[in-house]
Design a protein around this nucleic acid. Structure first.
Length: 424
RNA sequence: GGAGAGGUGGCUGAGUGGUCGAAAGCACCGGAUUGCUAAUUCGGCGUAGGGUUCAUUUCCUACCGCAGGUUCGAAUCCUGUCCUCUCCGCCA
């Protein structure tokens, strides 16, 4: 959520930002309603003050005076309640508008309506592989080595679910170890999070569960939802808390399962593990001071690059265009790995992304920091970044490191955790 | 799942209808003082929103887990809810 005062004072900027990001938030109406709301607020506070003053006189009053004071107080409270409810109705509408307004955008982010406008800003160390044979996709390879079982997944849980087996399981565990160990060395606190979260927490992060187009599975008869990413639980971990400025930046690396309905994604080109209802993810999350967040965002991006460099997979980094940014993001980088089995002759496929959400999530989650010897508190900035989304990383590794005989080379960085150099 | 106890400011902890935004202690900040790694003493010390001011100041409102209710008036009474602790049951 944006800051009301900021929106009020920068209505034109906010309107332009909404336009670039393809969001429909009626900022003019917001400005008008907010102006009325403030007068209502003042009115209600004044009536309340008068009512408090009336009650205050009660102690020194004679019995006869008490009766008239009671009456006066009752009337004042009634009027206050009336004005207050008018205020609350306005506030509700204001919040509805505000929640439709996305975060402001980094001035350097490319402007454009969709992912066509995303800007490639870097390439990884590894070159796109050239095969002197017809490469297989991860489904064929998975069948060859008995690694992925979609049929059983469908039998047990429906389409979009799967079992990993044999070396795929070792690979999944190796990827987790590799990423977590590396990030712990970089000062991240390892966290294993709940796989469910309440609706309020989802809202704070920017997800809308229980709507018609929601990506979120909700659990019947409860306020709980299966998380779509550990970002939800890691961000929610400190909701309502005031952190010490000296302890920032606070960097976490979370391990969680991610559940996504993929509603509306039917028909979008994808096969196999690329778009599934459940996967495991190692997620980075950071709480920072406002002036640290740009630097930490670069750090998260560098870490993502380092991970895929070590996995020896070709990738490109794109700076996400305004129209393709999620609501909370101020700036977002995606890593797209080369996937030889995608399309005809290989395509880029998103494997990680990292966002700087500035204070947009922190405002709704009410996460603040206090600076020693300074009065008051301020909102932290939050950032998230995928370290490894296991399912997509597995695609990249299997397809890029396959050999002519179908065996798959295990990248050096994973060999200690995998316990072998070759799959097959 | 059953029974009981409890949730108050950074911490400990008073406070059962008005003078309580809340005693006291600790911690912290500022001053004074004493020549000995500290004691004593005085003062200050929550958060958010709003009004006012060039600004400092100051004023108002809200907040005693959360949400409602009773009342002229609620930390205090009532209802619901969440959480914590203890005991019992069950269990990986």
């Amino acid at each position: 959520m944006l800051d009301r005062k900021f929106v009020l004072e920068n209505a034109d900027l906010v309107k332009a930002n909404c336009f670039h990001r393809g969001a429909h938030a009626d900022i003019e109406r917001f400005v008008e309603l907010e102006r009325i709301r403030k007068t209502k607020l003042n009115e209600a506070e004044e009536l309340n003050r008068q009512a408090n003053a009336t009650s205050g006189k009660m102690g020194a009053a004679t019995p006869e005076q008490r009766e008239s004071l009671k009456e006066e107080g009752r009337k004042l409270r009634e009027r206050k309640d009336q004005v207050q409810s008018e205020h609350d109705a306005l506030d509700k509408e204001i919040l509805a508008i505000l929640s439709r307004a996305p975060n402001m955008t980094h001035p350097a982010a490319p402007i454009g309506s969709d992912d066509q406008a995303n800007l490639e800003v870097a390439r990884g160390k590894t070159a796109i592989p050239v095969f002197d044979f017809q490469p297989k996709d991860h489904l064929e390879l998975g069948k060859l080595h008995d690694m992925i079982d979609f049929e059983s997944g469908a039998r047990v849980a429906g389409a979009g679910f799967y079992f990993l087996k044999n070396d795929a399981v070792l690979l999944e565990l190796a990827l987790q170890q590799f990423a977590v160990q590396m990030l712990v060395k970089h000062g991240f606190v390892p966290v294993s999070t709940p796989d469910v979260a309440n609706t309020e927490t989802l809202h704070g992060i920017g997800f809308i569960p229980r709507g018609p187009e929601t990506q979120i599975y909700s659990i019947e008869n409860t306020d709980l939802n299966l998380v779509a990413t550990a970002e939800i639980t890691l961000g929610g971990m400190y909701s309502g808390q005031v952190l010490d400025a000296e302890k920032l930046p606070l960097k976490l690396v979370g391990i969680s399962h991610c559940f996504r309905t993929e509603a509306g994604a039917a028909g979008r080109a994808s096969k196999g593990l690329y778009r599934v209802h459940q996967f495991t993810k190692i997620e980075m999350f950071a709480f920072t001071l406002p002036d640290q967040s740009d630097a930490i965002h670069e750090e998260l991006r560098q870490l993502e690059c380092s991970i895929f460099d070590q996995l020896e997979v070709a990738y490109r980094v794109v700076d996400t265009a305004t129209g393709d940014l999620g609501g909370p993001a101020y700036r977002k980088y995606d890593l797209e790995a080369w996937m030889p089995g995608r399309g005809t002759g290989g395509e880029w496929g998103e494997v990680t992304s990292t966002s700087n959400c500035t204070d947009y999530q922190a405002r709704r989650l009410n996460i603040r920091y206090r600076t020693k010897n300074e009065k008051g508190t301020n909102l932290v900035h939050t950032l998230n970044g995928t370290a490894i989304a296991i399912s997509r990383a597995i695609i990249a590794i299997m397809e890029n490191h396959q050999m002519a005989d179908g065996r798959i080379r295990v990248p050096k960085a994973l060999q200690p955790w995998m316990g072998k150099e070759i799959i097959g």
